[in-house]
Amino acid sequence: MTQPATSSDGTSISRTWTLASIGRGLLRRSWIGALVAAISLWLLAGMVTGTLSISFLLANATIAGFLALAGTAQMSVIASGPGNFDLSLPYVVTFGAYVMSAGLLGQGNISGSVALTLLVGVAAGAVNAALIVRLRIPAIVATLSTGYILYSFIVAIQSGGFDRVGGLFEVALRVRFFGLSGVLAAAALTLAAAGFLLSRTVFGVQLHALGQNAEAARLAGVRRGWLLLGTFVLSGVLAAWLGILLAVYQGGVSADLGRSYLLGSVAAVVIGGTRTIGGVTSVIGTAIGALVLTLAQSDLILLQFSIGAQYIIQGSIVLATVCLTAIWSPDRR
């Protein structure tokens, strides 16, 4: 196990992490294929450049950390039921970054800005949930419209003055300790917390139950409305937090900040071995999936493939993983 980005939340996923079952358990993990792929891609990069570089792995893990946050947000929504996706995610990310950089509560009041940004994430999630639960609009339509509304907010406010976040917060996230960046540590901690929430709390267990069989969950006393509210709020908060991290990492904001995270988040979930039919989550799988996508991108650049070939190969990776997951785990739901 040499996954610095994700090892911290490994314990929260495994339920039978004893010496006797460790080998058997590891082979049964849905993300084992992704892990093998990640290591192979790292070795491949080593072969191409002639040195097996830890700093290369850490640099990619930092980028993957962002994608893993987006993936985890998307995954919790996917888990809540078949066909549920959060299409507002990239816009919440971007809008969060703007709110963070606007310094609405006064320049230098960073904890206030963080709180306000996370609150925006909560609000976006709550609106999504209200549309889905109260008005019975399908998730994909409700989140799409929320996303468009957020996009128009972004277009309206983007000419205002936005500054770097600055302060101790920026210093802490930008600090580098043997190549390990503060922002990677922040992402890993968040993933660990999300993993705990999804696998060790009543909320998490009920969410899985709802996604696996909504009718059975209802009969067992799961309250769908509140649970969906929690799910979309979780997704919104994770997306807003990603916006905060990106604003600091990038040292500025732009209206296309979150654009690449819509398809990327779904791809990371899928490559992590989570099937998109609902009721299944794996934070560690999604994190490894994000690492695979990022490493694959870097390897293809290092191998100097044409951009067309890069897209074909990336698409094939996603497709192959979906097929393999479907073939290998016919009984999993």
Binding site: A45, T49, S53, S55, F56, A59, N60, T62, I63, F66, L246, Y249, Q250, G252, S254, D256, L257, R259, S260, T294, Q297, S298, I301, L302, I307
Partner: peptide, 19 residues
Amino acid sequence: YGDWNQSVAQQRVASILPT
């Protein structure tokens, strides 16, 4: 490829910079 996007450009450069 930075996709004419500050964020994407930074991340793509950062991921291959150690090499």
